[in-house]
């Protein structure tokens, strides 16, 4: 950015100086011509000098003035760069960083929306396939057990299908509950929770009270980025 600024300031200065030089040289040229016309009869030293300048305008005066202006340009540019570097530094850096942070923030928000969607997705599938959320929303005190039972049968069947399709649940320990289980040295304490009279070191012997659940499927559906991730199931409007 500072390099870009240096380049830009150099171009601006060169342009400005070029214009200035043109103006000055044109002024000098036409001024001398006018003066020579007015002072044609005079012949003092000044007039002679003017004549010398007028005759050598293109071969001598123009190159010299160009060189002088170029030198001035360089000096001016170096000065501007030197003095402004410190001033622009902070400004430039700020300009540099602001959009990137904005982008990061947008990415972050998108990422969070995505996570939210993945988190809510299973719920949305359970609602879509098995009407689970509608069921949770019911006030069961209004209905007879038989009515509830009829609805639950279908909900449970569909939700069960969905769960097995998406998660392919299987027990952590595939044995009947109540059976004796032997836990060797180095068993995974995250996968098996010990309760009751836990003392000493493995191997442990115990009774299987709950087989645990683990997911047998690793696939996660690809979810596209939608505008509003909070919508789990859209409202339905039927056209008559």
């Amino acid at each position: 950015m500072s390099k870009k600024f240096a380049k830009r300031s150099f171009l601006v200065i060169i342009g400005f100086m070029g214009l200035l030089m043109l103006g000055v040289d044109a002024g000098v040229y036409f001024g001398i011509e006018k003066l020579l016309q007015l002072l044609a009869s005079e012949s003092w030293d000044g007039v002679r000098l003017l004549k010398v300048v007028s005759v050598n305008f293109y071969t001598w005066f123009l190159p010299v003035s160009a060189a002088v202006f170029l030198l001035l340009t360089l000096i001016l540019w170096l000065m501007v760069r030197g003095s402004s570097a410190s001033i622009f530094k902070s400004l430039v850096v700020e300009q540099d960083v602001e959009p990137a942070e904005k982008k990061d923030a947008a990415d972050h928000r998108l990422e969070q929306e995505r996570r939210r969607r993945v988190f809510l997705h299973l719920l949305s599938v359970l609602q879509r396939e098995g009407r689970l959320l509608d069921f949770f929303d019911e006030d069961l005190s209004l209905y007879e057990d038989e009515e509830i039972g009829a609805a639950v049968r279908s909900i449970q069947e569909d939700c069960k299908k969905t769960i097995s399709k998406y998660l392919a649940l299987k027990p952590v320990i595939d044995k009947a509950e109540g059976e004796e289980v032997l836990l060797e040295q180095g068993f995974d304490p995250d996968a098996v929770k010990l309760t009751g009279n836990v003392t000493g070191n493995p191997p442990f012997k115990g009774i299987l009270r709950h087989r645990g659940w683990k997911v047998g499927k690793r696939e996660i559906p690809k979810l596209s980025d939608v505008l509003d991730a909070t919508i789990i199931v859209p409202a339905e409007v039927e056209m008559e």
Binding site: R131, E138, L140, Y143, A150, A151
Partner: peptide
């Protein structure tokens, strides 16, 4: 084999046909 058609919308249980 029981066949149920759940009620639509929020009338889930009330509208269930069994």
């Amino acid at each position: 084999h029981p066949v149920t058609i759940l009620g639509r919308g929020s009338g889930l249980i009330k509208g269930t046909v069994k």
